[in-house]
């Protein structure tokens, strides 16, 4: 049962990644693309946690936490660069 649920959820999250990539390609303005990249990081966290469930390993937890941190830092750096042309002030 859990394997079936994992398969279904992998398909759902894969579709979410596809839709987010559409917004990343279309996105008329820069903030749209930053938001799409942030959402891609969230989708990657979800995928890593689901794959960790599938392989029954606890290692994926660290990878998911690292992805969360890197996604946040990347979003903040891009936004700060677009606001003031400087990342650290």
């Amino acid at each position: 049962m859990l394997t079936t649920a994992i398969t279904i959820s992998l398909v759902l999250v894969g579709a979410a990644v596809g839709l987010t990539l559409i917004r990343l390609a279309l996105g008329p303005t820069m903030p749209d693309r930053i938001l799409a990249l942030d959402t891609l990081a969230i989708d990657a966290i979800a995928l890593v946690v689901i794959l960790g469930l599938l392989n029954a390993t606890a290692l994926s937890f660290e990878a998911a936490l690292l992805l969360a941190i890197m996604g946040f830092v990347g979003t903040v750096a891009l936004c700060k660069f677009l606001i003031g042309r400087s990342i650290i002030d």
Partner: peptide, 8 residues
């Protein structure tokens, strides 16, 4: 997660 991307 899919719902969030549909909204996006």
């Amino acid at each position: 997660v899919l719902l969030g991307s549909i909204g996006l």
